[in-house]
Nucleic acid binder design. Structure first.
Length: 180
DNA sequence: GGAGTGATGACA
DNA sequence: GTCATCACTCCA
């Protein structure tokens, strides 16, 4: 039984603060047209927000470079980059033009870990800077699921100790509590 | 607990 | 051109 198709999230959905978008994205379906043509839909279960240039953990906090340029685009495009020479990490750019912010996808369905997500969905550099629309082969749909505050857990982000105590402690990692 | 891995950015 | 760094995963 496949997950039902839903309404594709419009660009305006992404053009808000990263933290707000991150919260609203939980439970929404990440959709991928695999290289073999099959369609995979999986609900976002864990995300992290990188809120802008003032956020020391955000790649764009050091200014605009060739890698981070895509984060300066208006929300609604993907930011994909290679981490540790091994793993592709998938981000969704949020907020308005000129304000670099993004939401990192850390888990979908039962798959947790940003590197595992991209491996499971066959996401790599070729998706970088593409818009979140069906024709890109990677997009998001409204699942119709409404999450209550009680179902959302907030914790500090992972693996960003270099960003300093303040930013490392911000509870910008959001995940759906295990409802079994 | 620790190594692998290679693009990226800083510096010369 | 070199060098250090890194939003991770896997294996011991």
């Amino acid at each position: 039984m496949a997950v039902r198709a839903g309404k594709v999230l419009p660009k305006t959905f992404f053009r808000r603060e990263a933290l707000v978008v991150a919260q609203d994205l939980l439970g929404k379906n990440l959709c991928r047209r695999m290289p073999d043509g099959s369609i995979v839909r999986a609900p976002l279960t864990e995300v992290e927000a990188y809120i802008g240039p003032e956020d020391k953990a955000c790649h764009a906090s050091k200014g605009k470079t060739s890698r981070t340029a895509v984060m300066y685009e208006p929300g609604g495009v993907f930011y994909v980059y290679l981490c540790y020479g091994v793993h592709w990490l998938l981000n969704i750019v949020t907020d308005g033009p000129g304000h670099p912010a993004a939401v990192l996808v850390r888990g979908v369905g039962q798959t947790f870990g940003p590197g595992r997500v991209t491996k499971a969905l066959a996401v790599d550099k070729s998706m970088n800077a593409l818009p979140a629309v069906r024709t890109s082969g990677l997009w998001l749909e409204d699942s119709g699921v409404e999450l209550s505050e009680a179902q959302i857990e907030r914790t500090p982000r992972i693996g960003i100790d270099y960003a300093g105590e303040y930013w490392a402690k911000q509870p910008f990692r959001l995940l759906i509590k295990d409802t079994a």
